[in-house]
Design a protein around this nucleic acid. Sequence first.
DNA 1: TCATCTGGATGTACTATACAACCGTGAACG
DNA 2: CGTTCACGGTTGTATAGTACATCCAGATGA
Lengths: 151, 151
Amino acid sequence: MYYTTVNEKAASPSRDDALRSIQRELTAFARRARSRAAELHPELSLVAFSMLDLMTERGGCRGADLAAYFMLDKSTVSRQVGALEKLGYLVRETDPEDHRGQILRPSPAGLEAMRAAHEQRRIAFLDRLTDWDDADIAQLAAYLERYNSSF
Amino acid sequence: MYYTTVNEKAASPSRDDALRSIQRELTAFARRARSRAAELHPELSLVAFSMLDLMTERGGCRGADLAAYFMLDKSTVSRQVGALEKLGYLVRETDPEDHRGQILRPSPAGLEAMRAAHEQRRIAFLDRLTDWDDADIAQLAAYLERYNSSF
DNA sequence: TCATCTGGATGTACTATACAACCGTGAACG
DNA sequence: CGTTCACGGTTGTATAGTACATCCAGATGA
């Protein structure tokens, strides 16, 4: 056993090394994801893209939902939504049930832009994973789903 | 074989599903990275932390190495390094072999700050990964390293 | 009715970042 | 040699994304 004190969470050295590595690699990934997203689709930032994605998945949602889901300030969401609207990628509709809020939905153009972005990213991933076994890819996907599902 | 046309990149359906999943999950991670980083350790930004980490692991490295690894502009690295130096978290030393470059190393204070930040993050990760086997953690780390090393 | 809550917009400020222009060092080649 | 070009780093400038504070309008409940 590798416990040090009662209160300190500990683990085996090798487990600790792996954790450290996961942290660093995920961080590096996050960094690259941003620059690559910008490069692939200059008009659609990672956050904006994800917002459209959530609207689609939920069949329309309010700004407050986006703020909660992405842990962003409502002012940030307001501006991102404004930008998306200016691009013609979403439409707003005052919520008939509650006139304070708006229901946000991707426009046809927004759906198309999202589809294209998805496809480009898929191709980029394929390039990067060409020489991976199907089994390894499936395993990595499973690990990531498991990791993220803990949020 | 699952090729559709000569020019379109395709893969087996299951492989494609896994790719889509990896894409979505890594993106989800990237979305959360920033807010989580701020929450975990306000004093040491995600990027700065990772830079110190890389310096440590490599036993000192140059700004250009950091820029390449994190896909950042050298000006960005220069400013981050400047900030870390101002905090007393790193020391610079002109490379004796090549007077253009500098060798960057964490200072004792930097090591200590990193140790503290790392411990906080480690605890957060441990919480999230409590019921993972050592083997799974090691495997995930290996996958991420492999993925990132293709850059 | 009035106080309070909630969704959203706007003003302001800060940080991270990129790009471009610059400086000094090193290296290759005539 | 000297010249030219590549490389590492710094600084000026601009932009995007974000938070916080404040304000407004609609909703809600005592």
